[in-house]
Computed example of a mutant assay.
Amino acid sequence: MSARLLVVLDADSTLIRNEVIELLADEAGRGAAVAAATASAMRGEVDFAASLRARVLELQGVRTAAFARVLARIEPTPGVRELIAAVHERGGIVGVVSGGFHEILDAVAGELGVDEWRANRLEVAADALTGRVDGEIVDAAAKASTLREWADRHGVPPERTIAIGDGANDLLMMQAAALGVAFNAKPAVRAQADLVIGLVDLAQVIPLLPR
């Protein structure tokens, strides 16, 4: 059975208020340095994949037990549950595609009722992070192709797709959707989006959903 619409969100600073890699870096005592590098990547000043690899390297040695502490600090964005419910009421599906990590997103997305999600994976050895990403990196191109893949899989016409993001690595996904929404976004993203939402409340997206 086909879905009637598809809404795809970024995770960090969109679906949730946090940047997960910064929370993980706090566990290694490197939070400030990683936060600065993340901000630069989200502004589009550096290559996302190269930046992610460098930031993940700072996580080397963090024990996997830290995942539970990070999950306890996650704050869903205001309005996210209302938006997801509204999409479902209209016969649509919600996807999340993230440059963050499955180790955290699997729990968060499942609890929020997200239908599809994709993220990076952290390499682990002996119950600790190795400082490397396991597999191909979910970058801007991967986000855009994932939106198209989900729309095709669920039979959603391109004109009934919405993408919501805040960083430069969301721009290709936003361009691939019929409506690209800048949410809590960096200036470069606001400048290129179809629509800008300034309030940190995802319920603001509900009136934009196609019937």
Score class of each variant (00 low, 15 high):
70 V>L: 10
34 V>E: 10
146 T>N: 07
89 E>H: 07
147 L>Q: 00
109 A>V: 09
118 R>C: 08
207 P>L: 05
138 V>Q: 10
36 A>W: 07
166 D>S: 02
209 L>F: 00
77 T>N: 04
76 P>R: 13
162 I>C: 01
209 L>G: 03
153 R>P: 12
127 D>F: 02
27 E>D: 05
63 R>S: 15
185 A>N: 11
174 M>C: 05
89 E>D: 14
30 R>Y: 10
163 A>K: 04
158 P>S: 12
124 V>H: 02
2 S>V: 08
74 I>D: 06
95 G>E: 09
135 G>I: 10
154 H>Q: 08
9 L>W: 03
171 L>G: 07
110 G>R: 05
37 A>G: 12
14 T>P: 03
60 Q>V: 09
119 A>G: 07
73 R>K: 15
94 V>A: 05
63 R>N: 09
131 G>P: 10
102 H>D: 07
21 I>F: 12
71 L>H: 05
49 A>T: 15
122 L>Y: 13
50 A>N: 10
205 V>K: 02
198 G>I: 04
146 T>Y: 10
98 S>L: 08
162 I>H: 04
171 L>S: 04
134 D>C: 02
127 D>P: 00
60 Q>A: 14
62 V>N: 15
71 L>I: 09
69 R>Y: 09
151 A>D: 08
62 V>E: 12
65 A>Y: 00
203 A>R: 11
175 Q>D: 15
130 T>N: 03
167 G>D: 04
128 A>D: 07
43 R>P: 09
8 V>Q: 01
165 G>A: 11
162 I>S: 05
199 L>P: 13
47 D>L: 10
153 R>M: 12
80 V>T: 07
196 V>Y: 06
58 E>N: 13
168 A>F: 09
49 A>L: 07
13 S>W: 09
202 L>H: 00
181 V>N: 04
199 L>C: 05
40 S>K: 14
49 A>Q: 14
107 A>S: 13
